[in-house]
Design a binder for these strands. Sequence first.
DNA 1: TAGATGCGACACCATTTGGTATCGTAATTA
DNA 2: TAATTACGATACCAAATGGTGTCGCATCTA
Lengths: 106, 106
Amino acid sequence: MKNTAQERDVFVAIADPTRRKLIRLLADSDELPLYEITTHFEMGRTAVSKHLTILKEADLVTNHKKGRETRYQLNPAPLKEVKEWLSFYEDFWNDRAALLKDILEE
Amino acid sequence: MKNTAQERDVFVAIADPTRRKLIRLLADSDELPLYEITTHFEMGRTAVSKHLTILKEADLVTNHKKGRETRYQLNPAPLKEVKEWLSFYEDFWNDRAALLKDILEE
DNA sequence: TAGATGCGACACCATTTGGTATCGTAATTA
DNA sequence: TAATTACGATACCAAATGGTGTCGCATCTA
């Protein structure tokens, strides 16, 4: 049996502007079927579906079937990994900024 | 005259694990020449150089020549864009977390 | 029941990505 | 001066990415 829950890097998932738009779209509504989502983009249903699959593999969206529709929902939790990665450099650029400030004030 | 400062998406720049490792490496030291950087990776100098070029196009690193060396330095500033993008969803997952907590406590 | 709708699964294609090896040149060192 | 080192530039390649169109099936609806 193959592992259907293919792993996917969150950083890769959010690298694409279409996928960031998808994330935002799903953040603004509770859940949406594929055909609805597709109307917000200038590409075919298949392409949108592929992007959603990538987001799903990164665990950023979940989906369930409702009749003949497939409803998609956002799961923002994995974004915490990005936040944690960033926090290290946040300190860093604050230090840099502070350092620069010191130099300018001399 | 062509614009040498090619634009590059910060999100794309940090999507690659090698490039995140590069960022971290440069964060830990003030500046490093290419040959030095290359010793930390299991790939050729050309490949590392390409990754550094992408980081440079995203303005995440700067470089200057010092004798025959090319020294690379980190510029964490563009990461702020990622932070700002994230901040929206940070609120969002806090709300979600709070909501879930409410449901569980009923 | 017949048609329309929503979607997954493919097959396909152009472009990008991430790596290689090689060559030429400028700077350092013996 | 001669050899070595550091690098940019280029050509090349396999695999991944981001899109298309089509087919078939399940589910609504008239």
